[in-house]
Design a protein around this nucleic acid. Structure first.
Lengths: 249, 249
DNA sequence: CGCCTGCTTGAACGCTATCAAAAAACGTGG
DNA sequence: CCACGTTTTTTGATAGCGTTCAAGCAGGCG
């Protein structure tokens, strides 16, 4: 397996993410405390499955670099992508609290992650009220995102749904430092988009093509570049949430 | 407004819900602690909106009796019901942590609820690691439920979706003591079902009719009775989660 | 070069929406 | 208890969005 795990001491106070705008600042003590909960760091390649539906997973992760996604399947193979994850996101909390995982997680690009052991992670609640609060905050924000996705799946047309998904991901990428001036692309295949929107691959393709004709996006082999975020927002009847600082664990 | 709020001291150790199977048992001290966080109890009538999208809401609630639901709307009026709530559910956590509410909550039947003031509620994290854990547990379980709904919205056909929703609600009602031998009905209009499934009212009606013809359900004026839970599960390719004890706050 | 994965396109079918209207159930006041 | 307005459920007909089937094309990689 092309996975590399390092078990040396993690120094959270030196974490690059903390220096980014977008994350709440944190005292040196708090950073030290978090360091104590971590059991290592790892990298993984595109396509790697970090969490599998139906299994017990003894780890949680914080994304440091790269994109990943969460999905759930029916027995006959139909699958629904539930959400995408970017640096700063905490992954696997459901499994830590509720035992068996009922979704899977896969890397969309090469990723770097911080690793928590489940049992040690759960002592956060005893050790620090602030961190416990942060965990809950992250869980609530995740739920809020799912609310938005559900509105989309249930009520928006194909075109609106596609526009929503793409601007949504655009702002997530932007705010978590995944875009640079030379690279502001969302790394997705159309087949993944189809599984996210609940549409067939063929119809997804035709819908994206129409967005491209309107000069809202450009498709470049397994990635999407956003040309006109405001235009997409208006197609989707959506506005991005305020960019308020979020906790990082 | 037909709402009655009582501000007398709440005695959580005497709460009827605690005596129900399905909830985790709790020490006398813990119950006393929770009592301290509560600021009252209230009743409300069918159709009352407890939480409105876009507003700040200074309260959280624990459902004691009755059914309610959460929804989100697009500007042109299309709305998506996100989830239904039953006794034991904690409501309004998102708003407490993330400021402005981005969904609404409405009573589906007359309800009785425990009230928490936002600011006092948030001190739970400092006062009790166990209760903080429970809050997070509830948030995670809610998210897991949304995952299931998303799979349904995105991947299941109309018939499968309807079957899923109805058994899902059947088990929720059953396990939270909302059904008695003389009344095991889910209090829903077909229009609400339509807004939950992301289908038109007409097509929802035709789909429910087919479920009724198969003797899986019976429709009785603004309510649905489940005749064959296993049958519905098999139509939906779904099995209810294990009935493990859940915390009550 | 050839294979594999991912994207594109056209045609036909069908599930679901929309339109339109009627029937049934419900609540309320007379 | 009945009349009457309102909400909810039911039904039929028509239209359309999205699916499925079936190829063909393009690009990356061994």
């Amino acid at each position: 397996m092309d996975t590399s795990v390092s078990h040396h001491m993690i120094r959270c106070d030196a974490c690059v993410l903390r220096r980014m705008s977008g994350f709440r600042s944190m005292s040196a003590e708090e950073a030290k405390l978090i360091s104590g909960f971590k059991s290592g760091e790892m990298r993984c390649e595109t396509g790697m499955t970090l969490i599998s539906e139906g299994t017990l997973n003894p780890y949680l992760y914080t994304v440091l670099e790269g994109w990943g996604f969460r999905y759930k399947s029916l027995e006959d193979g139909r699958r629904q992508i539930l959400n995408y994850h970017v640096p700063g996101d905490l992954i696997g909390l459901q499994g830590a609290l509720l035992q068996e995982m009922d979704h899977s997680f896969e890397a969309l690009t090469p990723m770097r992650l911080c690793i928590f052991e489940r049992s040690r992670f759960l002592t956060i609640f005893e050790k620090s009220a602030d961190l416990a609060f942060d965990v809950t905050w992250l869980a609530s924000r995740d739920e809020r995102i799912l609310d938005g996705h559900m509105l989309s799946l249930g009520q928006r047309t194909a075109m609106e749904r596609a526009a929503y998904l793409l601007v949504f991901l655009y702002y997530r990428g932007l705010r978590s430092g995944l875009f640079t001036s030379s690279n502001a692309q969302i790394p997705l295949s159309q087949s993944l988009i189809a599984d996210t929107l609940g549409l067939s691959l063929v119809h997804t393709n035709k819908t994206l093509k129409r967005l491209a004709q309107r000069k809202l996006i450009v498709w470049r082999g397994r990635a999407c570049e956003i040309l006109d975020p405001e235009g997409l927002c208006s197609v989707a009847e959506w506005t991005p949430p305020e960019a308020s600082p979020r906790p990082l664990i």
